[in-house]
């Protein structure tokens, strides 16, 4: 393998101070290749979101190093756009203005010509069409359904041509049908735009369907447990979810998540879910 796009080296993360200190991540190492699609799953508290936020520069790691193209990252940057679960759109901007938000930033305006501006406008239109949002260009975000809002968020993240797209449970709040549509859409985006994609989810089926590799993390302390290579062709179709390979892997991953979560039986798992609410 040539230089990995993202190289995570012995990363550790401590939350809190003094006796309340919690080890959110311990000795996490992982290389992600250019244009690879990697999904992260794991029980509550395994640090998968924290790891993603560290790659995005939104959280600082207490130990180790994160390299992008061989260079250590310094805080957040336009090369690593992030899509959040919700509340990230700007309600005071219309859909098109949200997508073009990065054009307002100095970063996006440096050394650009008239042609670039025109290209950018064309790109915004193209992204709008790609996401099936052309008719909603002038709508306010709060007029859109949850699925459409996430499509705007993805288009906005893609606008600046990030080399890396980080997604933190982006479809977690959507209903099952909308999710399936979004899965095929994000795979299409991945083929078309060729970003390197790191995607956190609590939905194992989603994790397998989308990924080249599924990274299973375990809690207390947060660490990488197992990495599964997905045995499916690069071009995914919804029907593949019913193949023995898919179902076998799903069963294996679910069982391992349960084991690593420290709960012995399904009943423990249910109790935990009932008490704990949303997964982290």
């Amino acid at each position: 393998m040539s230089t990995p796009k993202i190289s995570i080296q012995q990363v550790g993360k401590l939350f809190g101070e003094g006796s309340h200190q919690v080890e959110a991540l311990k000795d996490v190492s992982l290389d992600i290749a250019d244009n690879e699609f990697v999904t992260f799953v794991g029980a509550s508290g395994c640090g998968k979101s924290t790891l993603l936020r560290i790659i995005g520069g939104l959280e600082y790691h207490s130990a180790g190093e994160v390299l992008v193209d061989g260079r250590s990252i310094m805080g957040p940057g336009a090369d690593r756009a992030m899509v959040f679960q919700h509340y990230s759109l700007y309600p005071w901007l219309r859909v098109m203005e949200n997508i073009k938000f990065s054009r307002r930033l100095k970063h996006g305006r440096e050394n650009i010509s008239e042609a670039d501006v025109e290209a950018a406008s064309g790109r915004a239109d193209a992204l709008l069409a790609l996401m099936g949002l052309t008719a909603a260009a002038n709508a306010w975000p709060n007029q859109l359904s949850g699925g459409m809002q996430q499509r705007v968020a993805i288009a906005r993240a893609l606008m600046g041509r990030p080399q890396i797209l980080l997604m933190d449970e982006p479809f977690g709040a959507l209903d099952a049908q909308t999710r399936e549509v979004m899965h095929d859409l994000i795979l299409h985006v991945h083929r078309l735009e060729k970003p390197t994609l790191a995607f956190v989810t609590h939905d194992v089926e989603e994790a397998i369907y989308l990924a080249d590799r599924v990274v299973l993390m375990a809690p207390r302390p947060g660490r990488i447990d197992t990495i599964y290579k997905v045995p499916l062709p690069a071009e995914r179709e919804q029907d593949m979810k019913h193949t023995p390979e898919f179902l076998g892997l799903k069963k294996e991953i679910l069982a391992r998540i349960r084991e690593t979560s420290g709960m012995k039986t399904d009943q423990d798992m249910l109790d935990q879910l009932n008490l704990g609410g949303a997964a982290g």
Partner: peptide
Amino acid sequence: AQVEAAQTMGA
């Protein structure tokens, strides 16, 4: 999330 989205767009 609104703040962080801007930061990851290069603000």
